[in-house]
């Protein structure tokens, strides 16, 4: 589903150049939960950004469903993001002026759904994350766990095949974090989504099919998740 080969990303030029990624090879398949780990500044977020077609690689190949996206012109990338990805952010990044329902609807409208269809689908998605009764609430009225569930519903809007999550449990308490990871794992297993999670949170490693460690812009180890090795 995602196939990355010999990926380089360099910020700046000459002596000021910073090599964020150096020759990364990385694959994710449908139905797989992959966790990216590594210290701050190791290149995890850069890799996630390039994978999500938000950031351009300096060189290398990025294929999504077999289609090369690294060389696509800039104006084509929003369409790729809309079609293929759902994003979950550490800080939730919900629109504070919109209700939970409107936050989910917004993604659907971006994907071309009519207002009525967007309303219906957003309601269903919020039901899936067990937040129907909070649909009319603003993010400021929701707990951290509830916000992240709204963010998950938003990421699922329009049924994207790949979910990219950046530290989705970092701002949550243990129980909420576990709930969020259970949801993401269910998505991968029951609906065949590819889920890539950047995390520092060792509590959630048990949900991974694979754990990939990055250091200094290179993948230094890739191993099966704890449950798989047990």
């Amino acid at each position: 589903m995602i196939e990355i080969r010999n990926l380089f990303k360099t910020y700046g030029h000459g002596s000021a150049a910073v090599h964020a990624l150096e020759g990364v090879d990385f694959d994710v398949d449908a139905g797989e939960v992959v966790m990216l780990m590594g210290p701050s500044g190791s290149g995890k977020t850069t890799l996630l950004s390039i994978m999500g077609c938000i950031l351009r690689a300096t060189s290398g190949s990025v294929k999504i469903d077999g289609r090369e996206v690294a060389s696509l012109p800039e104006k084509k990338l929003p369409g790729v993001r809309l079609e293929h990805f759902g994003f979950i952010f550490q800080g939730f990044n919900l629109f504070p002026a919109l209700t939970a329902q409107e936050n989910v609807e917004l993604t659907l409208k971006l994907k071309g759904r009519s207002a009525r269809e967007a309303r219906r689908q957003a309601g269903e998605l919020l039901e899936q994350v067990d937040l129907s009764e909070k649909a009319g609430r603003l993010p400021s009225d929701l707990s951290g766990g509830q916000k992240q569930r709204v963010a998950i519903a938003r990421a699922l809007a329009g049924d994207p095949p790949i979910i990219l999550a950046d530290e989705p449990t970092a701002a949550l308490d243990s129980q909420s974090g576990l709930n969020v990871m259970q949801m993401l794992t269910r998505l991968a297993k029951q609906r065949g989504r590819a889920v890539v999670v950047v995390t520092h949170d060792s509590r959630v490693l048990g949900f991974a099919d694979r754990i990939v460690e990055i250091a200094d812009g290179r993948i230094c180890s890739a191993e099966l998740g704890m449950e798989k090795t047990a």
């Binding site: 999500g52 938000i54 104006k75 929003p78 369409g79 994003f87 990044n93 504070p96 971006l110 938003r154």
Partner: peptide, 15 residues
């Protein structure tokens, strides 16, 4: 930040 989120979600510059 919200515009950044929109962009990440796939909103075009036109949006």
């Amino acid at each position: 930040r919200e515009f950044g989120t929109l962009k990440a979600m796939g909103a075009s510059n036109g949006h």
